[in-house]
Design a binder for these strands. Structure first.
Length: 355
DNA sequence: TCTGGGGTCCTCGTGCGG
DNA sequence: TCTGCCGCACGAGGACCC
């Protein structure tokens, strides 16, 4: 049975939710962004995008590009609620669904009767019942589906075979493809590779020389729109973290310790809420010159105890002793208890006791 | 222009035990 | 006892995504 995958992507999702709650903003350029001097744009309405405003752009710059923009603080609780409604509709149409973030999902349409008609009905249903507009891409794998859904946003509906995708995007930059970011695109450009067609035509061995034995051939297969990734309906988080960027860089040790304490408390709250405890406690420190270091320590017993987490985190921070003002501080927990339980067991099926 | 927060995955180096 | 090899766990950094 031939595989058929759809990628469904809600258009300017957070901004659309905000416009629905505040209809008086319709037609105006709206930017969803945190406040503070170092905030960045979470998302922007299509009216704001016309001014060149885009996600991840510093809000200060966005406001210079579009001084009349209406700034709205993000409300993730509201976005989660709408997202849940949408995903319930999606699951009512398709059995195998992989939800990615709040605003997109892969749907396995393989073996489905009239899959395209079903997807058109789903898009209509989502619009009528939630007010959200969606773009859909359909193809033989997740890669084609994803690129297709991006191709004609908003309200796009693009169906492509792998060969059609190769032709349609032959002259596009390699960074069109998910997994090829700015750094890799830059490195490819230095090799004279500026289009997907050129990348697809470059021998795997040549790419392997520059990108390694795994990434090299992988890049070439991406350019050929080959992918065999499975749809994974249940994704289990492997880490949880909290981090904060200071409005003004911090040099004072007491202030850093206090921030670390707040982050540890916040993280442990979240871990307790998710009934998770872990063994690897890590800190992340970004200095004023943008160098970022991480330090980690694995403890014997899984924990979500704020005293343990804070002690270890503070120990790591003291050992690192930042030599420059600190811009960002973060705490992360990984190696969750259920993972540790997957560790090899001695014959007989009993867990090894620690004594 | 001056870069958030919360994640995942990959690679590479190192230390350790069999 | 020493050495080499291998696999594994861990730690660090980087790229990438939404």
């Amino acid at each position: 049975m031939a595989r058929l995958i759809a990628h469904l992507d809600l258009d300017a999702f957070y901004a659309t939710v905000e416009l629905q709650r505040r209809p008086e903003l319709r037609g105006l350029p709206v930017i969803v962004s945190g406040s503070g001097p170092r905030a960045v744009v979470t998302t922007a309405s299509y009216e704001a995008r016309r001014f060149g405003v885009g996600s991840a752009m510093p809000t200060s710059r966005a406001l210079r590009l579009c001084p009349d923009a209406v700034l709205v603080p993000p409300d993730f609780e509201a976005y989660r609620a709408v997202s849940q409604k949408v995903m319930t509709l999606v699951r009512g149409t398709v059995d195998v669904v992989e939800v990615l973030g709040l605003d997109e999902a892969y749907l396995d349409l393989s073996g489905m009767h009239s899959p395209k008609a079903a997807m058109r009905r789903l898009v209509t249903q989502i619009r009528e019942q939630t007010g959200m507009s969606a773009s859909v891409g359909i193809g033989p794998n997740t890669l084609v589906a994803k690129v297709a859904s991006d191709a004609e946003k908003p309200r796009g509906f693009v169906v492509l075979t792998r060969e059609e995708a190769c032709l349609r995007f032959a002259h596009a930059s390699p960074s069109l493809v998910p997994g090829i970011g700015a750094k890799t695109a830059e490195k490819l450009e230095r090799l004279g590779i500026t289009t997907l067609q050129q990348l697809a035509a470059t021998p795997g061995e040549v790419l392997a020389q520059h990108f390694g034995g795994r990434q090299g051939p992988w890049l070439r297969s991406r350019a050929r729109f080959e992918a065999s990734d499975q749809i994974t309906p249940v994704r289990v988080a492997v880490s949880e973290s909290r981090e904060t960027t200071f409005d003004i860089d911090v040099t004072d040790g007491e202030e850093l310790a206090a921030a670390l304490r707040r982050l540890s408390e916040n993280l442990c709250d979240g871990l307790a809420r998710h009934r998770r405890s872990g063994r690897t406690i890590a800190i992340k420190v970004r200095l004023d010159d943008w160098t970022t270091v991480t330090r980690a320590r694995t403890v014997e017993q899984p924990t979500n105890d704020v005293e343990v987490v804070y002690d270890v985190a503070r120990g790591l921070l003291c050992e690192y002793a930042p030599s420059r003002p600190v811009r960002l501080l973060g705490v992360r927990m990984a190696t969750f208890a259920d993972e540790a339980e997957d560790a090899p067991r001695p014959p007989g099926g009993q867990l090894a006791l620690p004594w």
